[in-house]
Design a binder for these strands. Structure first.
Lengths: 338, 338
DNA sequence: AGCAACGATTTAGACGATTCAATTCACCCC
DNA sequence: GGGGTGAATTGAATCGTCTAAATCGTTGCT
């Protein structure tokens, strides 16, 4: 009833456990006849390798942990897909963990992953200076930051130039004639959000007459976008921002919904730019302008860096890879279309 | 450098490994002074339990595998969240695997999960009669089918009455006066899709003059919905269906996009009903009517059944839990609104 | 004082796969 | 026929944790 072990396979094939192990790991050094006998035995008994035992013996697991801020955000599922693709090629497994932008949940996942002695961790951290994260690294688990530049030399990272993303969005809006602009995102303690804000702030400051208002949210989901949208709609038209730059597309979609619900027109009454360029952005009620990040490539590259780090061991030097974002202009921010 | 083991903790605290283990697992039976000494030692050395060793010893892991058809579909992320919630309460971990509606990938994930001797598997299978899946169950891994009724007594299952869902959608469209209706979904070999089709077929047959056309897709994603939409738009208006029932919301959203791109109005030229009622449905360009399934509840219930099965052991009797879907009528199928 | 009973702690195997040094065996050559 | 060679296989130790049984002290009770 219980799954048979290598020992039973060996017994049935009339060989020692060492030979069975050899058939599994270095089949070429086993005599063909013996090999066949063992393979038949494996099949007959329905033997399945026990990963826990392999792992214990090897000291290292073949699982990579990927901790993301929001699995429901297509940006992260794309990212996960990129990571998984490479993992698959290297016979490792990706375990996706959802921190929901909550440090407590994030910590819980890191604990679990460390107990599992994972091969490594890819993480979009809530706070990259988190002592727990540093402790994890210090105890020897390789960690690669994703969508977040490492601000110190302790780890590898893969990121996108968020300040540039913010500047692209800001420049576009200002050149389109907007002077009252809302920035929606949060928490501002998250580096990605802060950088996107810093980017647009730079260009807003350059154009002296631009008024940039900040609306901070706790979590960047559709609900919160809608709430801010209702807030904006309630403002007197004379002082209401005429454009909004959202730190992710979910917020932008929520904002768009609120505009529709309150009879405000997009982009006429409110131009909107999102961030990430998830698939739903182009498909929205009003196709959404968005700053595109190469999500799958981020994931794949992060996995590459991780494997590089593990293989190089002591000789490894941490690297910071930075990609460029790209502004996709669509109807939601473009009065000339639509 | 290497992570310390229980042995080193014991040595530093001047006790035996057994005592350390007791501190970890049954702290109450250890004398307070000793306990404190051990805990201090744990903290000082940065000891982290080795899950692989525990697992090997226990013979069963504390990880539950969840295999879904499409992680990018919010329906499944909601489902995963429901499952995770309960897992968290019971100190287990959920490992989400994406089969992408591909039997090969599904099989690969099942192999991996079996090697990991997971606590159990929750799966929305491509084909519930898959011999590999049955073999997995036969070798002793508890499996619960999710969003899919077990057609035989071999496993527990949690599902939603898909035929009813199809009937709800069909009845609504027919009562709204539609006579040429498209069904979009696939592959038809998937039970969920077949059932939804069977449901709408029932009511279409009852109303003698209804013409139901079937458009099969390989994968139910936004892209494919758009493709079918373009195909529909190209038909002469006199023979083009006036309504479409999509087997999931991603298809419906794609269809909606295609309608917008080809200047067809929704619902006037084409009424649309989706399935799952994902968050994006209500937020679409034209708010999307959809058959709602209680995704999170499905996930949570599946996890409940799994735990029940593991605890009951031999005495367990498989159960089939079936929920009722609910039709959410919105603008995309309702000429009286909008 | 002697024995029982109890609490605290230790000891000694598992669990299953891997690995490497040691062994066996067949064969070849001088 | 003895010694050497090399391929094939074996056997035992090991990874870190858990647990049942054994041990060691105390204390309490008569």
């Amino acid at each position: 009833m219980a799954t048979p072990s290598i020992k039973e396979v060996a017994h049935r094939a009339g060989v020692s456990v060492g030979t069975v192990s050899n058939v599994l790991n270095r089949p070429s050094i086993v005599a063909p006849a013996t090999r066949k006998r063992v393979q038949d035995s494996i099949k007959a008994l329905g033997f399945v390798r026990n990963e826990a035992a392999r792992h214990l013996r090897a000291g290292r697991s073949r699982t990579v942990g990927l901790v993301v801020l929001d699995v429901a955000n297509p940006f992260f599922t794309d990212l996960a897909e990129g990571a998984e693709e490479l993992a698959y090629e290297n016979d490792t497994v990706v375990m996706v963990c959802n921190s929901k932008t909550d440090p407590v949940r994030e910590g819980h996942h890191l604990d679990q992953l460390e107990q599992q002695r994972v091969y490594g961790v890819l993480i979009t951290p809530f706070d990259s200076a988190d002592p727990q994260l540093r402790a994890l690294v210090a105890r020897g688990t390789p960690v690669v930051l994703v969508d977040r530049a490492a601000d110190h030399g302790g780890m590898c990272s893969v990121s996108v130039d968020d300040k540039l993303g913010g500047r692209l969005a800001g420049t576009h809006l200002i050149e389109s004639g907007h002077r009252r602009i809302a920035f929606i995102g949060g928490p501002l303690s998250m580096q990605q959000v802060a950088d996107r804000l810093a980017g647009i702030t730079t260009v807003a400051d350059d154009a002296a007459d631009v008024d940039l208002q900040i609306f901070e949210v706790e979590v960047m989901g559709v609900q919160h976008g809608r709430a801010i949208g209702e807030q904006l709609a309630a403002l007197p038209p004379a002082s209401r921002p005429t454009a909004a730059f959202c730190a992710n597309d979910l917020l932008a979609l929520g904002l768009l919904q609120a505009m529709a619900a309150t009879q405000l027109r997009v982009p006429e009454d409110m131009a909107i730019i999102g961030y990430d360029d998830i698939g739903f952005a182009a498909a929205a009620a009003v196709p959404l302008s968005s700053v595109r990040q190469p999500a799958a490539l981020l994931g794949r590259t992060a996995m590459e860096l991780l494997q590089e780090e593990v293989e190089a061991g002591e000789r490894h030097a941490h690297r910071q890879v930075i990609f460029q974002p790209e502004l996709m202009v669509r109807q939601s921010s473009d009065l000339t279309r639509g």
